[in-house]
């Protein structure tokens, strides 16, 4: 029991650090990628090729003066970024990063907690994430912040519906809500994206809206709202908000890989007859490569597609995404019935 607890504590710590480091290096990756797309060089002054830029940014964020605007609600103003960051990190609890590790004859799963309702847990964390933005926007006592917060939360609530509806067909096909079981079922080439392409596309679009990324970054639309909900934030408060966005991006990429792209399974690796631990480690690497691809995809879209207008965003969410997801559920249900009939 004790070794189990110690193992879980270490795993939590490792996942925490890994998410933060990935989020940190996503910032420099984003700037470099933008520079490449716009035919510039990008940040290249700190360290060789600019690899130390995130550290410099972090130090700058910490050293800046922390300003609390007049008439702001002090406690909630401080609590907003903390909630945003905490909820962003919490969703990683149910993600299976790999198979099991054999240490001293015992098997240890590379997943902090295998909840039997893992997918719902992710949704719960996503829906709580709204509060960080709403509380921060309201507590700033600034109309632009409030407008940004209202936009963010109405956008997130709307797209949450389509997101959960799109996953219902995946849940129906796999017959479980547990993330690790869904990952397991996709061994070989049985990736869910092949059987559920529509579900994946809806989920991807909703993930963009949920993480407030372009083309759906209305909450922080500079031309209309200055900075949106984090207009009044300085120092690490702003840092946490910006950072939470990158953590969210990493987590939603990881969720997409787990649910649709086979998770940690490398097709046909069992034919090589590798040692158990080596196979697991390769699987984890493969998982992170796929996650990295999706993070890059997020950035690629950001520098390619312009921002939507707010009514276009709401139309897309309510009039196209939700009906499409509902049709997808119907079709999947019908197909399952037909396959069961002919089995």
């Amino acid at each position: 029991m004790d070794s189990f607890l110690i193992y879980k504590a270490i795993l939590v710590l490792v996942i925490f650090v890994v998410s933060l480091v990935i989020a940190m290096y996503s910032t420099i990756l984003e700037r470099k990628f933008a520079a490449w797309i716009q035919d510039r060089v990008g940040p290249n002054r700190t360290g060789p090729g600019g690899v130390l830029q995130p550290l410099a940014d972090g130090v700058k964020m910490f050293m800046k003066e922390d300003i609390i605007p007049a008439h702001a609600h002090k406690f909630l103003f401080k609590a907003g970024p903390m909630i945003a960051m905490t909820t962003a990190l919490m969703a990683s609890v149910v993600i299976p990063f790999g198979k099991t590790l054999l240490i001293g004859g015992k098997e240890y799963a590379l997943q902090v907690s295998d909840l039997n309702i893992g997918i719902l847990y992710v949704f719960a964390m996503v829906s709580i994430g709204v509060y960080g933005i709403m509380i921060g926007g309201w507590a700033s006592n600034n109309k632009f912040s409030l407008l940004g917060a209202l936009r963010a939360s109405s956008q997130m609530i709307s797209y949450e519906l389509a997101m959960s509806l799109s996953l219902i067909s995946v849940i129906m096909a796999s017959g479980t809500l547990s993330m690790s079981e869904i990952a397991q079922q996709q061994s070989g080439w049985h990736w869910n994206v092949i059987t559920q392409p529509l579900s994946f596309i809806i989920f991807l679009i909703c993930a963009f809206a949920e993480t407030n990324r372009t083309p759906f970054d209305l909450p922080e639309c500079e031309t209309e709202l200055i900075g949106g909900y984090h207009t009044e934030y300085s120092s690490m408060g702003l840092g946490l908000y910006l950072f939470a966005e990158y953590v969210n991006m990493f987590i939603s990429s990881a969720v997409m890989v787990t649910l649709f792209f086979g998770g940690y399974n490398i097709p046909y690796i069992e034919k090589l007859g590798l040692a158990h631990n080596l196979e697991t480690i390769l699987g984890v690497l493969f998982f992170f490569v796929k996650t990295g691809f999706f993070i890059l995809f997020f950035m690629w879209v950001r520098w390619t597609i312009p921002r939507f207008r707010f009514d276009q965003l709401m139309n897309l969410g309510w009039k196209y995404m939700i009906p499409l997801a509902l049709i997808n559920i119907l079709v999947t249900g019908g197909l399952i019935l037909i396959f069961d009939y002919f089995k």
Partner: peptide, 16 residues
Amino acid sequence: LVNIIVYAGAIMVLFL
């Protein structure tokens, strides 16, 4: 979790 998703996550956001 449904309590959190529906009540804490959706209905209370509208209240707020």
